[in-house]
Amino acid sequence: MIVFVRFNSSHGFPVEVDSDTSIFQLKEVVAKRQGVPADQLRVIFAGKELRNDWTVQNCDLDQQSIVHIVQRPWRKGQEMNATGGDDPRNAAGGCEREPQSLTRVDLSSSVLPGDSVGLAVILHTDSRKDSPPAGSPAGRSIYNSFYVYCKGPCQRVQPGKLRVQCSTCRQATLTLTQGPSCWDDVLIPNRMSGECQSPHCPGTSAEFFFKCGAHPTSDKETSVALHLIATNSRNITCITCTDVRSPVLVFQCNSRHVICLDCFHLYCVTRLNDRQFVHDPQLGYSLPCVAGCPNSLIKELHHFRILGEEQYNRYQQYGAEECVLQMGGVLCPRPGCGAGLLPEPDQRKVTCEGGNGLGCGFAFCRECKEAYHEGECSAVFEASGTTTQAYRVDERAAEQARWEAASKETIKKTTKPCPRCHVPVEKNGGCMHMKCPQPQCRLEWCWNCGCEWNRVCMGDHWFDV
């Protein structure tokens, strides 16, 4: 396979590697080409510095992935760790964990309700045991953590790749202090920090972006993250068709209702045909949960890209028209025109101005929308079919299609509260000796007794199943 190397943020060049090629071997190839010592090179990928003893497969490097290699003399205490030698983080029983690669970060837990604080980093599902597709590297999971809308060759929703760059020099040479644990960490600028490894760059702020994971991409090709779309790892039924499908869209209502993408497309087109989208002054033209839940309008309007190009163009047109109407304007009634106009409040005669090729020149009556006339309008008909009709959803289907309910059931079956801080902690095999993952707590306690870890627990039921 081919990976592209950008040395000291210059133009990239291809390097041929195998899945079992080590990072140090990659350094040696680059060092020979650039005429520099291999031990002064640092390989940066997806916000993480890659260790010498890791392989291309370990690092989730795919065909035509772009890695950054910078030349920086080692500072005291760094060289041993980078070589894969006596790194205290690798000691058996050590409590410190390697910062998780962005290629394996899962933010789907952050669609849980606000009262489930902490689960994004504490609760991990076991539903990723799908067998890898044919042709994928051994052991590589097909679980997708992110979804994007690819405006490039795909023109559809695709699995996405999370990447990070330095907000100062805009190069992907920043190593994160810690990985993101929720969508806010990724979507809110300057929320996460790190250290830029580019020479002479003092940058410390992280800037995240997404790429389409279905095809090789260049540095400049980015895609918009659709953070309401998630892999259906909890096997929730769709609120409309009641099938279990994946991926799904999880509405931001209190129940976190789930809808499959085909039904979401149908829901949007139906509402669009009836012009029953909601115009929100802050958000724009949007839709609420299909069950009509309060405070559930979709905030990231790129989710409506699921409509496809033709329907999305209609959505944008109707949204612009609705904006004009909300501002007190009118639409030209001549067939084939429909231009938005903003006449004076007491102006009865409205002319669709033909300047700049935008208007048709038609003069019409503001009251009856017919060709302009003197005197009273002959008839004014009330528009028919403008009443909002509820999208029919079966109550039982709505009850079963809740992301929140599956989460709470998982928590109930696989977790116990920490005796000190009461945060839910998952036990997935292993011994009875637990350690609270909350940095402010870190209590060592017994899963069996529910009390602080002691010699009695150690001698009596340390390794009970």
Rank of each mutant, 00 (worst) to 15 (best):
L272Q: 02
A379G: 12
L61W: 03
E98V: 10
A371K: 09
G359N: 10
H68I: 02
Y149P: 02
N448Q: 05
K48T: 05
Q440G: 14
L112P: 13
V164W: 14
Q326D: 10
Y372K: 03
V244C: 04
A214F: 06
N8G: 04
C289V: 01
C196N: 00
D86I: 12
F13Y: 09
H302V: 09
T386L: 13
L287S: 01
G329F: 03
G336W: 08
P189H: 05
L26T: 01
H373Q: 02
A371Q: 13
H279N: 10
K416I: 06
P137R: 12
S223A: 15
T410P: 08
H200K: 12
Q34R: 08
G359R: 13
D394S: 07
F381W: 07
H227C: 13
A401D: 02
S101N: 12
L162R: 00
F364M: 05
T240G: 14
G450C: 04
E395W: 09
Q25T: 07
G179N: 09
A401F: 02
Y149E: 02
T414F: 10
T388D: 13
D184V: 03
D262R: 04
S141T: 11
E367L: 11
P132K: 10
R6L: 06
G47H: 03
G139M: 13
L249I: 12
V224P: 13
T103E: 14
S384P: 11
Y318G: 00
R51L: 13
V157D: 02
Q165N: 10
E444F: 05
P288W: 03
R442M: 06
R348W: 05
R6S: 04
R396F: 13
F146H: 03
D20Y: 05
C360W: 02
N235P: 02
D20M: 08
K220A: 13
W462F: 15
V465Y: 15
F362S: 05
C436Y: 01
D18Y: 13
D106S: 11
S233W: 11
R75Y: 12
G385K: 10
P417L: 08
L283R: 09
C421I: 02
L249Q: 00
V157R: 03
C457S: 01
K369I: 04
R305L: 08
S384D: 08
D39A: 07
E309L: 13
R442I: 05
L261Y: 04
G361V: 03
I142S: 12
V456W: 15
E395N: 11
T270P: 02
G429W: 06
A398P: 04
C95K: 13
I298H: 02
E49M: 02
V67D: 01
V465G: 15
N8R: 01
V290H: 00
S218G: 10
Y372E: 07
R128P: 13
Q197C: 09
R128I: 11
L301E: 09
W54R: 07
Q165S: 08
G135S: 11
K48G: 02
F463Y: 04
F362R: 04
S19I: 05
C293L: 01
D18W: 12
H257Y: 01
T388W: 09
D184P: 06
Q78P: 14
Q347E: 12
V29C: 10
H303W: 01
A339I: 13
P153W: 05
